[in-house]
Every structure is written in C-alpha cells, then in structure tokens.
Design a protein around this nucleic acid. Structure first.
Lengths: 374, 374
DNA sequence: ATGAAAGCGCTAACAC
DNA sequence: GTGTTAGCGCTTTCAT
C-alpha cells in the first residue's frame, strides 16, 4: 500500500487547526497568530507537506508560471535570451516555462492558442519567435492575456513590446567599420532593398539593414545589391562568406572587370557573422587582416571565438526586466479586476540598450589581433 | 463583464450529451459512437473549448509533463542537449518543462524536493546537473518517481541512467592525436591524477581523463602533472591555453631547461577547447599548424568555428530516446499499479554512441585547413 | 483570528 | 454506449 502525500487537511489536523487557517499560515497571510503559524509550519515540516499546485491553480486561477516562447534552444542568441529571461523570472519568484517553436509559425500559433496551457495555466507570456509579425496575427491570438512581444517590430502598437535597438545599433556597427577605414562594406542579413523602401521595414533584419545602409550612404560610400547578402544563420553566413571571398580574390587577381574588394562586413547577427568568417577562411581570407567583420547580439561565444567577434551587444538583462515589468503590471491589473470594467492598460513599448564591443574581428593593428579582449 | 472560457459542461450541453461522454469523446476514448463524437467535437470547436489542464491533472494525477533539469541554458552543450530532449519529448506527445540550476547544488536539490511541482505535477524527470554525484544524494531525493540521471556516473546503480562514452570516446580522441603524429599531448579537463587512481573516477571528466591517459601511456608517450590542466569552461580553457602556449614558446626560444613543446591538446569538452584555441591565439600559436586540438561533445558551433573543431560527437538524439524509453516504461509501470505490490522495475543503464569528427583543428596538411568540413 | 461551506473543472468508477 | 455520482486538494467567501 503506497502511503500517499499528506494534504493540507493532514497538516491542519496535526496542528489542531482548520484547513483554512493552515492554508493562510502556510501562505504567509496576515491575520494569523504567530503561535498558530508556528504550529502549522512545524506540522507541515514534520509531515513533509508539499502543496498540490494543480489544486491551488484550479481554485485560484493563478499559477505564477510565465510562458516563454522562442524559436529554438540550440543557438547562441536564443540560449542567451532564454537564460536572461529565466534568471529574471526566477528572481521575481515566478516560474519560467520555456518552449521552442523551431521556427514554425504553426508551432507558434499552437503555443498561443490550441495549447491548453496558454490562457489557463500561464499567468503571462513572452514571445520571440520568427515570422510572427508577418504570418501569425499575434494580437488576435492573445485573448487579452498578459503578453509581451520581443522584437517583433509590428507597427500597430496594440501589445506590450520590448524591441532591440535595431536601426541605431546596426548604424553604429557600420559606422565602426567606416571609422576603421573600411570603404567597401558588405552587408549580411536582410535581402537587398533600396533605402527608400526600407522606410517601411517591418522586421528586425529590415531595420538593421536600414541602419547599416544609412551609415554607409551618409558616408558617401557605395550601397547596392551586389554588396548585400541574405543570411540569418551560420549556414547562410558561410555561403555569404564564400561570395565575399570570391569577390576579394577576383579583385586581387588583377581582373580589370572585377568589383572592388570588400574590406568590411556588417552582419545582422553574430550567428551569421561566425558563418561569414568561416566562409572567408575557406578561401584563405583572414579576419581582420583582409576584411573586418562585425556582428549583432553579443552572444557569449563571441568573446572566446578566434578571432573574437566585434559586435553590437544588446542588454538582455534589461530586456528581461522590461518584459517582466510589463507582464506583472498587467497581471496585477487583471487580478484587481481591471479588465472587467473596460479599463485596459495602454500598451507599453521599450527599446533596450546596447554597447559596441570591439574585439579582434575589427582590429586595425596586428598587435590588437592577438590581445584577448573580453 | 468578462465572458469566461467554456467548460466541458458547456460543450456537453451544446452537444446534447453528458459531460462524461463529452470527455470521453474529446480524449479519443473507445466506446463512443462516431456520430456522438462528431457532435461533441463540433460543439467544442464552435465554443472554442480548451480543456482546463489544472482540473484534469488534479483529478487524474497525470500531467504528461516531463521535467528536465540542466545546469544552464547559455552554453553550447546544454543548449544542444536541451533541444534534443525537448524535441524527443514533444515527439512523444509529452510536454517538456526545462529548468536550469546554474551549477548550484542547492538549486538542484530544490528542483527535486522543495519545489512543489516535482512529484506532484511532473510525470517524470531527467537531470543532467553538475555536482549531483558528489554533493546531492539524488537517489534519496527521488521518492520513487520516474527519474533518469544523465551522465552522473554514480557507481551504485539504483536509478535509471544514460551515460556518455566518456572513457572510450576520450581514448579515441587522444588516439586520433597520436595517429596524426602528436608526441607530447596536453590534457585539459579533470585535474591531474595517476592512472591507478583514476580506476575509481566518479565523474565524467575523471573518466575522460582515464581514457586520454590510457591512450597516451599505452602508446609509450609521456603523461604527468605538467601536461594536465583543469578546465571545464571557455574561461578556464583560455587560462590553460596560455599555459600551453608559454611552454611551446619557451621551448622554441631555445631554452635548454624547457619542457618539450606540446603538439596536441585533448580537451574534456568543446567548450574548454574553444577557450584553449583562444588562449593559444593570444600568444600567436596557430591551430592546427602549431598544435592540434580536439574537443568532446560535438556542439553545433564546432562546425562553423574557425578553425572548425575536431571532436567526439555524442549522439544526443539517442540519449533522448533512451531517457524517454526508461521514463515512459516507469510511468506506465506505475500507472498499472506496479509499485504498489513492491514489484519495482530494476534500474536500466545505457551508454550512448559517438563518432569522431575530424575537422580543421586536427588537420595534418595545410590543404585540409581551408576545406570547410561539416 | 479562526472556521464552515461551497465549488473550481475535470475524470475514475460504477450504474444503466 | 451513455449517464450519474462523487471527489481530487485547495482557496474564496462569509460567518463567527
């Protein structure tokens, strides 16, 4: 016969009080005499009582669980984002529930709708998943639940959102290359678009391209389709790196028809930047001696890669803080019956900070190349 | 006035059946007439019914949630492990709940005990967390719940466990260096220990050292404390890389007292290997031209790093399969009342497969150095 | 400050 | 095949 877990009843009986008093005592509610609370806590400890959260959640309708949706776990960026969000959620006494969609819009839709956890188990949700802006009508999926969009860049501000300094950060990245003497810069990330057409960029990569081409054009440097390579992952980055290397080698070979050789590459994320460096190395092109490369995100491995990667490091701790501030505000508001009388909280928006991190991949002097910069 | 979610009652009423029939129909139970099931499903769809899992879990005592505990999210190894486990769990129709302990034995203990989710909400648990073998009495913490230990290497087989091919894999790694001509191999990972003392190695790094030193000694090559560096992370790896570089430079400088220069480095994981390469580069030592380096794990970024990293790639898909087979067997066994009459399932053990992946970091000829090997 | 009653939404067990 | 009953363990409400 299995002796099953003690319930609140058992604790109450052992302490000689009612279940209600035991519940209040255990949850630290005021209005319980200290001596009574002590008795209850002692009984709970003695019995090794563990609250049954399913029962608690069923009755109270609150779970303290925050749902986090990302594209995948196994990527330098998402693993860092996940860790930052998890840390902040735990620090606030909440419980993170992290799910990956593996870049599937269907999976994202499911996570937000069909999935019975959403809206019943979770107190709030934070999502950074690809393609949401274009393919998934997020605002419609979210039935007024506490919800934060990360870097979805949607233009209609109906939801709380924390965005990255996409345009400004990538502009600064391109400017760094220019300041370091680059005059023919390749851009890796979003597909080519004219500057004017980028005014309506809807996603992060579009905004980053806007920033990079802005810096380049404003400096009087060339910007055209031959210098823009579409890539978001290391695999695509390798392909881009090969193309960039070929153009450099072609120019070196003395071919008079050759395009001028690239001397800098501005990447929309670190992941692709690693691929670009890899692709360049395949053809013997060295970074930073032959070409300088800068990424975006500030992933952890950028500091211990060889060459270490210069980047636009975004402040993910700040992102997590903002997201949870927005979420908890909405959760509290709902708990106080805020939504019942039509008084909905207006949507909040925030843009997180960044800093340019200069490492080997954009170094100008050989001595800097071997200095290990964190 | 907020119109709250429809319940099973509402669906049953709309379909003109009892709640029980509706429940059975929705859960795909047999013994429901097809026409009835269709009516119920239609009603559920029309009302946008979503099952309340807290209620379901409370009543049935099953959640279909698998608890996964790892040290951290933001590391190349754990992010890959997490993704593999998550994929397999989802593929089996279960729900992964992933938690990080951040290398804290306290956090691990909490995750397994104080945490009210464990043993009440979760159907099973999979843990790969550092220090569990030595500091946390896992077997005692687990109250007979379905539970799988990943690579904890504990000697008393009281729990289900999936282990890595630690000794064998690292032996193969060292052998690769030897076969490629290395004669003075540094080992990075576990602290130095005599071969005899490693007979009782209790953790993964100890076993890996046993494998490496076995290959080296059996080949008649030197193995002593001067060639062993303790490191598990990129940061430690950089320190080790600096020390290794100094010894190489010292020997090059013609100092007659100098130790022979290292020509190979066998690392206990890829994470440290990246650090070693980084540390070597800080002193201008090139990989693989000056020293060959091999890692362990087969993390994703090893293929697109520069140099790309040779490694012992362990089969994490297989790990996930084994772990879930063990878990589901135990869950089913418990559901069938297996534990009540004292018939406990004997503990299972498995060792996952590996393959040696040769990339640039151990290449012997220059031509191989620029070939991009996946 | 404490307790009694009621029920959250679902499903196991049993009747019909 | 379908319906009825009962209750999982907790917390909200309201009485004392």
């Amino acid at each position: 016969m299995t002796t099953s877990r003690p319930t609140l009843r058992d604790v109450a009986a052992a302490a000689g009080v009612s279940p209600m008093t035991a519940s209040n005592a255990l949850r630290g509610k005021t209005g319980v005499r200290e001596s009574t609370r002590a008795k209850v806590l002692a009984a709970a400890k003695k019995l090794d009582y563990r609250i049954n959260l399913t029962a608690s959640m069923l009755k109270s309708g609150r779970s303290n669980i925050i749902h986090v949706i990302v594209n995948e776990f196994d990527s330098p960026f998402y693993s860092k984002l996940t860790q930052a969000l998890s840390n902040e959620i735990v620090a606030r006494g909440l419980i993170p529930f992290i799910e990956q969609t593996r870049y599937s819009a269907d999976a994202a839709t499911h996570a937000l709708t069909t999935n019975p956890f959403s809206g019943q188990l979770f107190d709030g949700e934070i999502i950074h998943a690809w393609g949401l802006d274009a393919h998934v009508p997020v605002a419609a999926l979210n039935g007024g639940r506490p919800f934060v969009l990360v870097d979805a860049c949607e233009e209609t501000p109906t939801l709380d959102a924390v965005n990255f300094p996409n345009e400004e950060g990538e502009r600064a990245a391109a400017q760094l290359l220019i300041d370091h003497g680059c005059r023919n810069i390749a851009i890796v990330g979003h597909a080519f678009a004219e500057r004017a057409d980028l005014a309506h960029a809807q996603n992060a990569f579009g905004l980053r391209l806007r920033g990079a081409c802005g810096a380049i054009l404003d400096a009087g440097l060339p910007y055209d389709a031959s210098a823009v390579f579409e890539a978001g992952s290391a695999a695509d980055g390798i392909t881009a790196g090969h193309a960039i290397a070929r153009q450099i080698l072609d120019a070196r070979s003395g071919n008079t028809d050759a395009l001028p050789p690239f001397d800098g590459v501005c990447c929309a994320n670190d992941y692709a930047a690693f691929g670009v460096i890899r692709g360049l190395a395949d053809h013997g092109i060295r970074v930073p001696q032959d070409v300088k490369v800068i990424g975006f995100d500030g992933v952890s491995c950028g500091s211990y890669a060889t060459p270490s990667l210069s980047t636009v490091e975004v402040n993910l701790e700040q992102l997590a803080k903002y997201a949870l501030d927005m979420l908890t505000a909405r959760i509290e508001h709902q708990a106080n019956g805020g939504n019942e009388d039509g008084e909905t909280l207006p949507p909040s928006r925030a843009i997180i900070g960044y800093r340019i991190v200069e490492r080997e991949s954009t170094a100008t002097r050989p001595s800097e190349c071997s200095a290990h910069a964190l």
